[in-house]
Amino acid sequence: MNLGSTPSQTVGPFLSIGLPWTDGPAVTADEGADTVWIKGVVSDGAGEPVPDALVETWQADRDGRFDHPDDPRGAVPGFRGFGRCPTEPDGSYAIRTVLPGALPGQAPHIDVSVFARGLLQRVVTRIYFPEHAEQHRTDPVLAAVPAGRRDTLIAVPTAGGYRFDVRLQGEGETVFFDV
């Protein structure tokens, strides 16, 4: 008897439709003067957009505080700290937030998880901001990244916010962390 091999299958494309979150891309309820948009595109190893990915963010508020029980200081009212946005057919996403404050011993940053077809586990990265370049030198996580790849973690200023593209593989691949 000769049995054929089991066909391979990928994860998804249920992620962008199976994990909705009521507040979606709104990390803060405020739409004040310090509100910014972080927009970008998730692309695969060939540079093609990933239309069914899910981008999640988790961050401190502008004072470096979290909306979490482990942070007894609490966050600014209306600040959730968490955002979730499915990508559009062109691979784009957008998260409305505020620039985070510094955490002890770390430069201000936003933690990012990306879920996408073909990934058995999420990939995790960080967004750092160019205006905190002085603090980048002492951030232990950023310092552990080879100098030639750190630019994949630095957002680019745009009108009304920042651009942060996520490249899952290949040339210009975003740095991901093993967590």
Rank of each mutant, 00 (worst) to 15 (best):
T57M: 11
T57K: 10
W58M: 14
Q59D: 03
Q59F: 02
A60K: 03
A60T: 14
D61F: 09
D61H: 08
D61P: 10
R62A: 13
R62I: 12
D63N: 12
G64Q: 03
G64R: 00
R65V: 13
R65Q: 15
R65A: 11
F66G: 09
F66H: 15
D67L: 11
D67P: 04
D67M: 13
D67E: 13
D67S: 07
D67A: 14
P69A: 13
D70T: 10
D70N: 02
D71V: 14
D71R: 08
P72V: 09
P72K: 09
R73S: 05
R73A: 15
G74A: 14
G74K: 08
G74Y: 05
G74L: 13
G74T: 10
A75K: 01
V76S: 03
V76L: 15
V76Y: 02
P77E: 12
P77S: 14
P77K: 11
G78H: 02
G78W: 00
G78Y: 03
G78N: 06
F79I: 06
F79V: 03
F79N: 01
F79G: 01
R80H: 13
R80Y: 09
R80V: 06
R80C: 02
G81D: 01
G81V: 01
G81Y: 07
F82W: 08
F82H: 09
G83V: 12
R84E: 10
R84G: 02
R84W: 03
C85A: 15
C85Y: 11
C85S: 15
C85R: 13
P86F: 04
P86C: 04
T87H: 08
T87Y: 11
T87N: 02
E88D: 15
P89I: 00
P89G: 06
D90R: 10
D90Q: 10
D90N: 15
G91D: 14
G91P: 08
G91F: 11
S92G: 11
Y93N: 14
Y93R: 14
A94E: 15
A94K: 15
A94L: 14
I95L: 12
I95F: 05
I95M: 11
R96H: 13
T97W: 06
V98G: 01
V98D: 04
V98Y: 07
L99C: 05
L99R: 01
L99P: 00
P100R: 07
G101C: 03
A102K: 00
A102T: 00
L103H: 07
L103F: 05
P104Y: 04
P104I: 06
P104V: 12
P104T: 12
G105M: 12
G105W: 04
Q106M: 14
A107N: 00
A107P: 04
P108Q: 06
P108H: 13
P108E: 07
P108S: 00
H109L: 08
H109T: 02
H109N: 10
I110E: 05
I110V: 15
I110H: 02
I110L: 06
D111N: 12
D111Y: 02
D111S: 13
D111I: 01
D111P: 01
D111H: 09
V112N: 05
V112A: 00
V112C: 11
S113R: 15
